[in-house]
Design a protein around this nucleic acid. Structure first.
Lengths: 231, 231
DNA sequence: CGGTCGGTTGAAGCTAATCAATTAGAGTGG
DNA sequence: CCACTCTAATTGATTAGCTTCAACCGACCG
């Protein structure tokens, strides 16, 4: 543990409300690790030994079955992952892999569960974190079930555009292969979907996207705050 | 509140560990209502005023956007719903509608949040409930993204078969239209998928399904405990 | 008895996946 | 520096999966 990171971790929703001693205890047990890119941090089906908190870099959560694989989510700093499995002392439903060099805080599951048992404030903080994770997956599920792939792409572009300050330009925060998997498309299909969106003022140049007809794009996408907004 | 129901409610994971007085307080504030079938209990986008606990009957959770609608889940007794929205004092991401005459316990969101703030044990119980809801949605998401519709149907049949005692016969617990929506299929597509499964020993007679080649069906379905088992 | 609803079937069309080929760029090593 | 390889991304051709529209059947209901 480098002292330097403590304030940032302390500021996370999950740890903000806990007592000074509880926090110190957790941090004492925690490991801070730096991993290169493309390292498998977690494998589906393994027991949850650690709660992970991403401090720097990027981590992909993956689901797989029958030889197929899909990207379930992309974790950015300072996101936590694998919280539910840790709390339930259960096996991982997803794998996790770094997609960049990443700095990760690993807190032994044991310590999380012990603290949960004795610190009510921590339990409440976890309730908030879990609730918002849960709602995020529900939104994602609605997105998947109710929209075509072109619509999913259009809405994702609009979301990114808003998140990046609505300047008319969007920078894709991940490569197109990953974006395709996130949106449940093949890379070929994504490429063609971008082609379809040209007619709606979407110009793609590598990871840079320019939007020249936002209202047209929104008419196609029909963004919905119950799906697309992080509320 | 009928006295008669109290022990069953008390036995729920969510309430089992709380103090006698806290429980009494909650129940005092709660309403027990009986609704006919096809009643809209909750509308997407409304604020979460109550936590719902289904005591009897059946409730469908629905998501919608742009005039489309999909079944997100079916709640059976004694399931809770809308917990995350209540906890976060947020708007509903899903609608809820009875599909049978149903008896529902409604606890004001206010009381839930108050109790969460002062009762650590209740917070812990909620953590468990939320974690398992969360993991259920993740499983469902993997199911959707990684399997074709015939595979989803085959696995659903196998799951139901196991849940009903693996007797070689399965009774569909909901009508086919609903099953189709749950599996993200059209009713026509579901009907054809049943046709496809005939070759795997699946005989359908209304809501009764007979399985004569379970191993064949499982070879097709490739059930996966990280998707299909309620762990 | 006509009407409605759930379910099935057929035909046609659309969406998306697959397979194959090509290009462009990044990284490697002689 | 230039071949060489590797990978991401795109494009075309084809096929598979799924939806849509339409017709139809049978059960249930007023």
């Amino acid at each position: 543990m480098r002292e330097h990171d403590l304030p940032e971790i302390r500021a996370l929703e999950l740890f903000r409300t806990m007592s000074e001693e509880s926090f110190a205890e957790l941090m004492h047990a925690a490991y801070l690790q730096t991993f290169p890119t493309q390292v498998q941090l977690i494998s589906e089906g393994d027991l949850a030994d650690f709660l992970f908190i991403l401090l720097e870099g990027r981590v992909e959560l993956l689901g797989s079955t029958a030889g197929r694989e899909t990207t379930m989510a992309i974790i950015k700093p300072f996101g936590t992952f694998i919280l539910a499995a840790v709390l339930m002392d259960a096996i991982h439903l997803m794998s996790a892999r770094t997609t960049e060099k990443s700095r990760v805080l690993m807190i032994p599951a044991r310590n999380i569960r012990d603290l949960l048992a004795k610190d009510g404030d921590f339990a409440r903080a976890i309730v908030v974190e879990l609730s918002s994770c849960y709602r995020a997956v529900v939104r994602d599920q609605k997105n998947l079930k109710l929209r075509s792939s072109v619509e999913r792409l259009a809405n994702r572009i609009i979301s990114l555009h808003n998140a990046q300050g609505a300047t008319g330009t969007v920078i894709l925060p991940y490569d197109k292969k990953t974006l395709a998997s996130l949106l449940n498309m093949t890379p070929e299909n994504l490429s063609r979907a971008f082609g379809t969106l040209k007619a709606y003022g979407v110009q793609v140049d590598n990871e840079r996207i320019c939007l020249s007809d936002l209202t047209g794009l929104e008419t196609l996408a029909q963004p919905n705050r119950l799906i697309d907004e992080r509320v």
